[in-house]
């Protein structure tokens, strides 16, 4: 690589610019969240608020049933995670390790579901949920995601990589199928399981589209919806309150990202590379 001083300086400037492009929006979000309403409309923009307006957060939280939204978000995300693991693991194992009639057909079906984004078929799903009477309940947000074609695909891949001899050894050791899964397969697939959990958590914690379409009242709404509604208050959006709300939404993810950054990045990249 070129290591002349000019190149080094240019490289440094480039890195700083890049950092500004990706970090400044967040800094802006954080700083706005603490501004007074007046400060949000001044020119030139204020970067550091005069006094930290903590009541923006209170105002955001109190502008709707945020406790309900929060609880819904947590319940929906966790239940999706649990159900996904409960359905993905046996399916991936069967696809990876058994031969049975129509196996290829069922696997192809899974792959089709992998290629179809749920955002494309929300309308008929909405109609179905409505005729089954679970529209506007958290089940409407959970059940369509109770399994994951992507998860089955990834986990099957990882199960198939376990050498045959290991399973033979386990069978000589009198292990049942369930013990083989629990004691041998799952520990070996741990990176994939972590990947799937992080991936799924982030996707469903952040999801806006599905709750928007499938809920009509506050009883099943989740946090992203509540945050989005902050903007629709009468008399135009108070950006400081909106940003305070957003900070509340982003914070859990940012905290997780801060502590598990390597894992998360690896998880997403892993899903990309495989």
């Amino acid at each position: 690589m070129n290591s002349s001083p000019i190149f080094k300086i240019a490289n440094g400037i480039g890195l700083v610019l890049l950092f500004i492009i990706f970090a400044v929006p967040f800094v802006w979000m954080a700083s706005t969240a603490f501004k007074s309403l007046g400060e949000t409309m001044t020119f030139p923009p204020v970067w550091i608020p005069e006094t930290l307006q903590w009541q923006n957060f209170v105002e955001a939280w109190n502008s709707g049933p945020f406790l309900k939204y929060f609880v819904n978000s947590v319940v929906v995300t966790l239940l999706i995670l649990i159900l996904q693991f409960a359905t993905i693991i046996p399916a991936a194992y069967a696809f990876a390790r058994y031969e049975f009639p129509l196996k290829n057909f069922f696997f192809a079906l899974t792959m089709i579901c992998l290629m179809i984004p749920s955002q494309l078929i929300f309308l008929p799903v909405y109609l179905n949920l409505s005729s089954w009477g679970i529209l506007d309940t958290i089940w409407g947000l959970i059940l369509p995601f109770a399994t994951s074609a992507f998860g089955i695909f990834l986990l099957r891949q990882s199960f198939m990589q376990v050498p045959e001899e290991l399973l033979e050894a386990a069978r000589l050791d009198d292990a049942s199928e369930w013990q083989i899964i629990r004691k041998i397969m799952l520990p070996l697939a741990k990176p994939v399981l972590i990947t799937l959990a992080l991936f799924s958590f982030i996707a469903h914690w952040n999801d806006y589209f599905w709750p928007l379409v499938m809920t009509t009242t506050d009883q099943a709404r989740t946090l992203p919806l509540g945050i989005a509604m902050l903007r629709q208050v009468e008399g135009g959006a108070a950006w400081n309150v909106v940003m305070a709300g957003n900070l509340l939404l982003v914070l859990p993810i940012l905290v997780i990202f801060f502590f598990a950054q390597k894992h998360i990045i690896r998880a997403f990249v892993y899903t990309g590379v495989k």
């Binding site: 409960a86 359905t87 046996p90 069967a94 079906l109 899974t110 179809i116 078929i121 179905n128 369509p144």
Partner: peptide
């Protein structure tokens, strides 16, 4: 094997294929 794939396939049929 069918019992093991059933939950997933059932969900797929309900929320992808049938829709």
């Amino acid at each position: 094997p069918y019992a093991m794939i059933f939950p997933a396939i059932f969900i797929f049929c309900l929320f992808f294929i049938y829709p």
